[in-house]
Design a protein around this nucleic acid. Structure first.
Lengths: 347, 347
DNA sequence: TTGAAAGCGCTAACAT
DNA sequence: ATGTTAGCGCTTTCAA
């Protein structure tokens, strides 16, 4: 391993000078010729700083902690981790991933992470919902991923649930659907409520009356399938906006049993949590993919900007006004992503 | 932060003594009363060692690197990461996760990880296949996850593909199926070949003739669905062993269109990569879940044992002879997991 | 404009 | 049985 000592020796200067130069603190403190000399030798020797050693002095490790609930690591969190890791990598950070089981274990894991001198934390939840922050995280840089701080004091990156519901419904309307159903989940979480609200807003805007019979909040497995079946019977929908892939699947299944063809007899748009339908199973099923990767990416970027107290102004935020692709192909939902700043209030 | 210095001061001894005691190297080197005294103060003060500081001296960081291909992080790798993280946690290690895109980026990421002083690496692939080791990994402790080293020189933890195929087929036989189909993938990877071999072996053992018409190697989407449809027509199978969940879904879809009920008219067993069917969609579909978590867990354990040159003898390896649950319920496939030791040869 | 020296928290060889 | 000393690689006063 090449050390500063080595470079100093070869350049005939002291280690301090090398440190100064290599940290770009040489403005008017080191002669240019010397500085260049040092830089040349460093790159020639392939010098890479030892982040652990410098952390001992500076207290900064360039390590980010990613905390998620046990179950969250699969399959939802995969994309988030990937995105966070990508951003970390680009910004010169490392990501330590930790999954927790319950609050007690969570506190321990946070402690362990802190001992490694983590500069900040990403805290991910399974599906956009209100969350209370663990005590141990109170006094460190922190960004929430796919969740909202109950106290409204922690910045978070979440899907724009309202817009997801609004867009999907609008597309169904534009596709000519007259009776658009909403197949939602039972949990009153932000994701569920936001998408439902978007659904209603799009209907209203198109002067279509909201009909409670077209709405089903279903659970899982057999009962859910039965409920969707009943929805077909009682309300005869010709369009479906589904809360997630499981719900979309129930619709798909019922349609198959009735000999209805999707894309012909009925239209279906579902949020594809597992990314399984669009990838391999039912490409004709229009899906909205949750921007897991993007959320992770943005959250990590935001976290680093907090740590380094730099501005996000020069970051390349995605264009939220970009036109959406036409129906019947997977909709990249990266654009449906919001950064909630610290102290801001949900609208 | 509580340091050894602080403890030393309070105990009225030197830092070295504290170090000795807290690292349990005080056997006959420190008086018992002093040692206990130190320990008492340490725990009272809530002392936690600073792993980064000690790493500077010892060269050991207690950090493990987890490397996987970009796409692998979702959704397959989630469980592996979780398992690896769990093992790491239990053994006092941290896991840094890194995803790569292409060989060049991979080399860079490995370099970065090494700078953080990673003690060893886990190298995960998407689906059990032969892999060549990156140069940069040659001289560090390394364990493969869900892949096999082409050179046979790196230990790996992989699913027991043969046994997965064998068990699944045997169950279909025991369930009374007469014409058992194999719906496989097109890639000639270890997973595919092993499961197919297991399928054939189980058939042979039951004195059932192998019939090529009952085998379909299909790709994805529409063509795959059509191929499975043809399989129904030409071979009239009453049992299906499917390579993965996508393939199982094609069977399920065809059955639905024909009015066939699974568990009644036909039996289906599929490997459930996404864990989506068993969890939320089709509980009546018997699935074999790949032991992603277990592979990660074992691999990390093995890695640590290599790093610490300790023996695995006292580890709690899962019981591979445990009786399997009856057909028509998800089969936990944790037992179908093999540790391939370094230098061993595939049978 | 540069270098010497101290120190981050810890470990380890060497004295005592 | 315990303390002194040196040093891991780097940063940061402080002197020169």
């Amino acid at each position: 391993m090449v050390t500063m000592k080595e470079i100093a020796k070869q350049a005939g200067v002291s280690v301090s000078t090398v440190s100064l130069v290599l940290n770009n603190r040489d403005e008017g403190r080191v002669r240019d010729t010397v500085a260049n000399q040092v830089r040349a030798i460093a790159s020639q020797l392939g010098y890479k700083s030892n982040p652990l050693a410098s952390s001992l002095r500076t207290g900064r490790t360039h390590i980010l902690g990613f905390i998620s609930e046990d179950v969250a690591t699969t399959p939802y969190a995969g994309g988030m981790i990937l995105g966070a890791q990508r951003a970390a990598q680009q910004l010169g950070y490392m990501l330590i991933v930790v999954s927790t089981e319950g609050p007690k274990n969570e506190a321990e894991e946070i402690e362990a992470l802190k001992r490694y001198g983590t500069d900040g934390f990403l805290y991910a939840k399974m599906s956009n919902r209100m969350a209370t922050m663990p005590e141990a995280l109170k006094d460190t840089p922190l960004v929430l991923v796919d969740a909202t701080d109950e106290a409204g004091m922690t910045p978070s990156v979440e899907p724009d649930e309202f817009r997801i519901g609004y867009d999907a419904t609008q597309r169904l309307i534009n596709a000519g659907c007259q009776r658009i159903a909403y197949v939602g989940a039972e949990d009153p979480i932000i994701a569920e409520q936001g998408r439902m609200a978007g659904y209603r807003a799009a209907l209203a805007e198109a002067d279509m009356a909201f009909d409670g019979h077209l709405v089903a909040h279903v659970g899982n497995n057999e009962p859910a399938l039965a409920a969707v079946n009943a929805l077909f019977d009682t309300a005869q929908p010709d369009g479906f906006f589904c809360f997630n892939d499981a719900r979309a699947w129930y619709v798909y299944e019922c349609a198959a049993r009735r000999g209805l063809t999707i894309g012909h007899d009925i239209s279906v748009i579902g949020v594809d949590n597992h990314r399984v339908f669009a990838d391999t199973l039912v490409p004709q099923l229009t899906t909205v993919e949750l921007p897991h990767f993007e959320m992770g990416y943005w959250a990590a970027s935001k976290l680093v900007s907090i740590i380094e107290e730099s501005s996000l102004a020069d970051m390349e935020w995605p264009d939220t006004t970009a036109p959406l692709p036409p129906i019947k192909s997977p909709i990249p939902a990266a654009i449906h992503c919001t950064l909630i700043e610290k102290g801001s209030v949900r609208h």
